[in-house]
Amino acid sequence: MNSNSEIKQLLQKFILNQCTPEETNEVIAYYKKNKLTDDFPSVEEVQTLLGEMPKMNQQTADDIFMNILASSKENETTIAIAPKKSNFRKHISIAASVIILLGVGFFYKQNLQNKTAEPKFDFKSTDIVLQLENGNVQIISEDNSVEVRDSKGNVVGNQNGNKLVYETGSDVEKVSYNTIKIPYGKKFQLQLSDGTLVHLNSGTTLKYPVKFIAGENRQVFLDGEAFFDVAKDKKHPFIVNADKLNVRVLGTHFNVSNYPEDAMTDVVLVEGSVGMYHTSEEFDAAKNTILKPGFKGSFNRGNAQISTKPVLTDIYTSWINGGLTFRNMTFKNIITKLERRYNVTIVNQNEKLANEKFNASFSDESIEKVMSYFDDIHGINYTIKNNQILIK
């Protein structure tokens, strides 16, 4: 991170709780290095920055602020907050940014002191990161080939290029998990130990067993978007946990989209059959929503209701081959998806445009082509400089 503009871009994402863990580490590292110099943005600059950004909703602001307070409590740091409740949400973003600027170095230092026995790792926000069951981190480079080993040194998987393949077999008694994190601007393929193939979209995290245990369900945990080609195994149902939604299958092809900015978790079924149900429930084929091929099931995170409708599945799976599709989506949500897809920062100063809804489909187009499209149909005023797009 070499310039003030770059750290400002990351601060935008940090304050809106959109940073990947790797980007968070970059902010922390930069703060530790420059907190006593003029290079680090001042609180006033952050306030100006926040004024240029779309207003975050009340719930998001509250969540970010409470998370920061929780972190401070865990590290025995006291932060005094004025008791004026009327100004709490009005200044929530600024308060969060001030705490980040003043406290993040201390939190990080405390975490290092508590984990001195753990190895240190250097990775960038553009790296694919694999966290092993013992907490160690391994960087996945698409132009490389590496072995993945468990805590005992046994080879459990092999990565070659854009695909990581785990060894088959179920000779373990205790489940252990790996977690893979795909950065903005990249996609990746993962073959699980049962033969299930998973296509992972940008900005996605998947937690999964290194090996599945005989007699138990095959369960993985998804944050983001993935297309699953599930290996058939009638004795061991495959379950995708997407926040408060479980998707249960035996063998099928389906897409799950579970990004934080969306009000719905969408499941699109290409082939086979899947059941959708709340994580607090037990699966019941007679009561739960059973999706048929060619249908999309949408889980409303607000009221936990599930609705279904027929769709053209190709629209929702085109991302695997570089496509990009928006259906009745607000421009502010489109911005988030463009940032994730192209690894850019977009600042929108046109609040009216933020709530406009669009339908659009793109093949494997550049960000310049996509922005040009929105300019053609809406006449937006924007500039692109480096990896930052400003919409006025």
Rank of each mutant, 00 (worst) to 15 (best):
V46D: 00
D375M: 11
P310V: 05
E356Q: 14
K85R: 11
I15R: 04
G302M: 13
T313R: 01
Q58T: 14
K8V: 04
E351R: 11
T48M: 12
Y184K: 13
V210D: 02
S273W: 02
V165P: 01
K109S: 15
K287A: 12
D284F: 06
E133P: 05
V46T: 07
V137H: 06
F362D: 06
S3A: 00
E282A: 13
K55T: 10
D284L: 08
I213G: 05
K85F: 11
P310T: 08
L10D: 04
N2H: 06
K357D: 00
D376L: 15
K120A: 02
S193G: 07
V311S: 05
N387S: 12
S280G: 09
E26Q: 15
S280N: 14
T317R: 07
V256H: 04
M329S: 09
N241I: 11
L291I: 09
V344C: 06
S298Y: 02
L11R: 02
S298E: 03
N217C: 02
A29V: 00
K124T: 13
N111C: 00
N57E: 13
V155C: 04
N343E: 05
F106G: 09
P209D: 02
Q47T: 13
P54A: 08
K369F: 05
P183T: 09
Q305R: 14
A214Q: 15
L197Q: 07
I180P: 01
H253K: 15
G272T: 07
Y208W: 07
N57P: 07
Y342N: 04
F326P: 07
G224E: 02
K8R: 10
T179A: 03
